[in-house]
Simulated assay, not measured.
Amino acid sequence: MNPVVGLDVAKGESQVQAFLDKKKPYKRSFKVAHTIEGLESLHQYLREIENITGIRPPVVLESTGHYHTPIVQYFEERSYLLIIVNPLISYRAKSSSLRKVKTDLIDARHLCELYYKEDLEPYKKRGIQLLNLRNLSRQHANITGIYVQTKLQFQAVLDQVFPEYRGVFGHALYMAVRCAIRDCRKKKTTDEIIPRNKRLREFYDKKREEGKPFKVAVIACANKLLQWIYALLQNNSTFQDLT
Score class of each variant (00 low, 15 high):
residue 130 L to I: 11
residue 21 D to Q: 11
residue 9 V to H: 00
residue 64 T to N: 04
residue 71 I to G: 00
residue 45 Y to Q: 07
residue 214 F to G: 04
residue 215 K to M: 15
residue 156 A to Y: 12
residue 151 K to M: 07
residue 1 M to A: 08
residue 224 K to V: 06
residue 243 T to E: 10
residue 99 R to I: 15
residue 115 Y to N: 10
residue 132 N to S: 14
residue 71 I to R: 01
residue 23 K to D: 03
residue 242 L to N: 05
residue 5 V to K: 01
residue 129 Q to S: 14
residue 167 G to C: 02
residue 28 R to E: 11
residue 58 P to R: 03
residue 240 Q to Y: 02
residue 102 K to L: 06
residue 10 A to N: 07
residue 164 E to M: 06
residue 229 I to Q: 11
residue 32 V to L: 02
residue 202 E to G: 08
residue 242 L to P: 01
residue 59 V to N: 01
residue 165 Y to C: 13
residue 212 K to M: 13
residue 132 N to I: 07
residue 230 Y to L: 11
residue 77 E to N: 12
residue 131 L to E: 14
residue 109 R to M: 14
residue 178 R to V: 12
residue 174 Y to M: 06
residue 27 K to A: 04
residue 10 A to H: 11
residue 145 G to S: 02
residue 196 R to S: 06
residue 99 R to D: 12
residue 86 N to G: 10
residue 142 N to W: 09
residue 81 L to K: 15
residue 132 N to D: 14
residue 235 N to W: 05
residue 117 K to W: 04
residue 67 Y to P: 01
residue 119 D to F: 03
residue 216 V to G: 06
residue 93 A to H: 12
residue 158 L to M: 12
residue 30 F to W: 04
residue 203 F to I: 06
residue 129 Q to L: 13
residue 172 A to L: 13
residue 130 L to N: 09
residue 108 A to P: 03
residue 166 R to P: 01
residue 215 K to Q: 14
residue 225 L to R: 03
residue 83 I to V: 15
residue 39 L to K: 07
residue 209 E to W: 05
residue 61 L to W: 01
residue 26 Y to W: 12
residue 164 E to S: 09
residue 49 I to R: 00
residue 205 D to M: 10
residue 55 I to L: 10
residue 58 P to T: 03
residue 200 L to C: 05
residue 33 A to K: 15
residue 187 K to Y: 07
residue 90 S to F: 02
residue 132 N to M: 11
residue 124 K to S: 14
residue 40 E to L: 08
residue 116 Y to W: 05
residue 110 H to G: 09
residue 57 P to C: 06
residue 159 D to S: 13
residue 111 L to I: 04
residue 178 R to P: 02
residue 95 S to E: 13
residue 60 V to L: 03
residue 97 S to I: 10
residue 164 E to I: 08
residue 80 Y to G: 05
residue 131 L to C: 08
residue 69 T to K: 14
residue 132 N to C: 04
residue 122 P to E: 09
residue 142 N to H: 14
residue 144 T to Y: 05
residue 217 A to V: 12
residue 239 F to S: 10
residue 4 V to G: 01
residue 216 V to K: 12
residue 133 L to M: 14
residue 100 K to Q: 11
residue 93 A to G: 04
residue 42 L to M: 13
residue 11 K to W: 00
residue 115 Y to M: 12
residue 10 A to L: 08
residue 15 Q to A: 10
residue 93 A to R: 09
residue 133 L to S: 10
residue 122 P to W: 07
residue 26 Y to Q: 04
